[in-house]
Simulated scan of single mutants.
Amino acid sequence: MTWSLLFFTTNIFLGIGLAMDAFSVSMANGLNEPHMNKGRVCTIAGVFGGFQALMPLIGWFCVHTIAEYFHVFEKFIPWIALILLLFIGGKMLIEGIKNDCKEEVSAVSPGALFVQGIATSIDALSVGFTIAEYNWIMALAASLIIAIVTFFICIGGLIIGKKFGTKLSNKAQILGGIILIAIGIEIFVS
């Protein structure tokens, strides 16, 4: 593929498709932390965008170097995403039930955010196969387009989650946990 409008359009749509899991998790994070400030919103969206950029590059690198080993790993991707999201979602669900009487909800920890970033972008590893025909610069550009699209979609998810999180009060953490578990199951099934 060459630099063209088709290149940019394809990667924008690829970014939209890949960002849907991160969008849902962003909504859950917004539900969990309805009073987060703009800096925190940008940080969370940036983590998801960063992982969505990194994973296709890792996939591209694997295709160009260690492709035969990646095929063995590929069948474990849904299992990894399921386990990570079940763990984080289950933890949120349990904490939400334990703290049912409390008004204050805790912020998503850096470790949990890191795990969410990996879990929601692990399917983007396979995008490395679809961009394998690109040279290094085009693969990097495609990954950056995906990251930018993900960033803005996640900001939207966080804003939506914050709005409903304020209305749902102490039930938001329970709902956020259920959403993460459902996303994990959906990734595994599909």
Rank of each mutant, 00 (worst) to 15 (best):
S121C: 14
N135C: 06
I187G: 00
I97Y: 10
A81W: 04
D100R: 15
M20D: 01
I185N: 09
M138C: 07
C62R: 00
L168Y: 11
K162W: 04
F114P: 08
H35G: 08
L158N: 04
K91L: 07
I58R: 06
F70K: 00
E186K: 13
V47F: 07
I179S: 08
G17V: 03
L175D: 06
P34N: 06
G89L: 05
L5S: 11
L85C: 06
M1Q: 03
K162D: 02
L113E: 01
L18R: 02
L31C: 01
L18T: 11
K91W: 08
A124T: 11
F188N: 09
N99S: 14
G89P: 04
I187R: 15
L144H: 00
V115W: 12
M55Y: 01
I83W: 08
A19L: 02
G17T: 07
I178S: 05
N99D: 13
G161I: 03
I58V: 15
G177S: 06
F70T: 10
F61S: 13
S26G: 05
P34S: 02
I187D: 00
L6V: 12
G96L: 12
T9L: 13
F7H: 09
I66D: 04
V108F: 00
L85E: 02
G50T: 11
I97L: 15
A67S: 15
M36G: 04
E104A: 13
D123F: 06
E103I: 12
I131P: 07
L180D: 13
N11Q: 08
L168E: 05
K167G: 03
R40A: 03
F61I: 10
Y69I: 11
K38I: 11
C154W: 08
V47R: 02
L31H: 01
G156R: 02
S126P: 01
F13H: 10
L82R: 06
I155F: 01
V189K: 14
P56L: 01
G30V: 02
F7S: 05
Q173V: 14
S109K: 14
G49K: 03
A45T: 01
A67E: 14
A139P: 09
F51I: 05
F151M: 13
M1G: 14
M27I: 15
P78Y: 05
I155S: 01
Q52N: 14
S126H: 12
A112I: 04
Q173C: 05
E74I: 15
V63E: 14
A172M: 10
